[in-house]
Simulated scan of single mutants.
Amino acid sequence: MLKKYSSPHFRRLAYAIALSLPVCSTAVAEPFTFYGKLNVSYQYADEGEGRFSDLKSNSSRLGVKGEVALQDNLTAFYLLEWQVDLADLSGDDNIKSRNQYVGLRGNWGEVSLGRQDTALKMAQGKLDQFNDLEGDIKNLWRGENRPGDTITYRSPKWQDLRFTGTFIAGEKDGPSSYSTSLTYGDAGLKSQPWYLVVANDSNVEGYDIQRLGGQYKLDNWVIGAMAQRQKRESDGDSRKGWLLSSAYTLQQLGLKLQYQELEQDWSLSAGVDYPLAKQVKLYAFVTRQDKQELPDKDWLGLGLEFRF
């Protein structure tokens, strides 16, 4: 029974978690929190080469995070997160690195070093109503990057304004790149009913990107909009796109609709969420994607998400 869990990646993950466990009982702060999100859907798909059904793990993840208070109002923090596949992959392919960094926080903001979502990616907040599913904005737009070799600075909030900057070191002879964002309001739409963002990538993964977006909550409605311009550095190819998203709470049901466009390419998604508990929900979605140079694609899915 133990043989199938003996891959080097699994042993390293288990060792990292086990190594952190003793700290929990000795430190005054909370240096260790184990968390995860498990998301699996059964999908009926037509991706241009025939129809088929499939079970898919949608960016399921496990992680550990923590922080320790230091002197002079400083706090040291870390996060280690891995993507796991509950449906298809096994062995070494089952575990992939996600955000993994260490940093310091003070009255001046926070600095983190490691592998991390860029400032532009983080700044989208919850504008993408179909994040991690087939309607995820990454399936049409560039800019959803999580590079290594990053240094990220996040300022404290000034009158609901916050600046975030990511510096990505160039490897060997490669150029360095940058990602920045300026946000206003509350990305979770809890302390404030609005959220605005302007963000920019400079030669990140070979693209220059400008992104402008906003989201507003009114009673049971949440309405969002985003525009993007992306230019490929290698040949100067430039494309523009926009997105509209909405969500409506009807008793216990969460109804969602999202349309995204990039020049002549587009994606349309509709879905419904049904919470079974605070951490568990059932959901269903349908997505159609139309790209000019590829066959049309359609997905119909029913899934379960568990957070802890």
Rank of each mutant, 00 (worst) to 15 (best):
Asp273Lys: 02
Thr118His: 07
Lys157Trp: 12
Gln192Cys: 02
Asn99Ala: 08
Val280Thr: 15
His9Gln: 15
Leu19Gly: 02
Lys121Ile: 15
Leu250Trp: 07
Asp92Cys: 07
Asp160Ile: 08
Asp85Thr: 07
Ser20Tyr: 08
Met226Cys: 00
Met1His: 15
Gly224Pro: 07
Lys190Leu: 09
Leu113Asn: 13
Asp235Pro: 05
Gly188Ile: 03
Ser53His: 12
Glu293Leu: 10
Asp298Asn: 15
Ser191Tyr: 10
Leu38Glu: 14
Ser246Arg: 00
Val272Thr: 13
Asp72Lys: 09
Gln251Leu: 11
Thr287Val: 02
Ser112Asn: 11
Asn58Val: 05
Glu49Lys: 15
Phe130Arg: 01
Trp242Pro: 03
Ser245Val: 09
Phe10Pro: 12
Lys291Val: 08
Asp92Glu: 15
Arg288Gln: 15
Glu49Leu: 14
Leu218Glu: 05
Gln251Lys: 15
Ala87Phe: 10
Tyr35His: 05
Gln100Trp: 03
Gly135Pro: 01
Trp221Ala: 11
Trp242Tyr: 05
Gly214Arg: 01
Ala199Met: 07
Ser25Ile: 06
Phe130Leu: 00
Trp82Asp: 10
Glu261Leu: 07
Arg232Lys: 08
Leu182Gln: 07
Val23Ala: 08
Gln230His: 04
Gln264Ser: 12
Leu257Phe: 07
Leu127Ser: 00
Ser59Arg: 13
Gly50Cys: 04
Arg115His: 08
Leu127Glu: 00
Gln192Arg: 12
Pro295His: 04
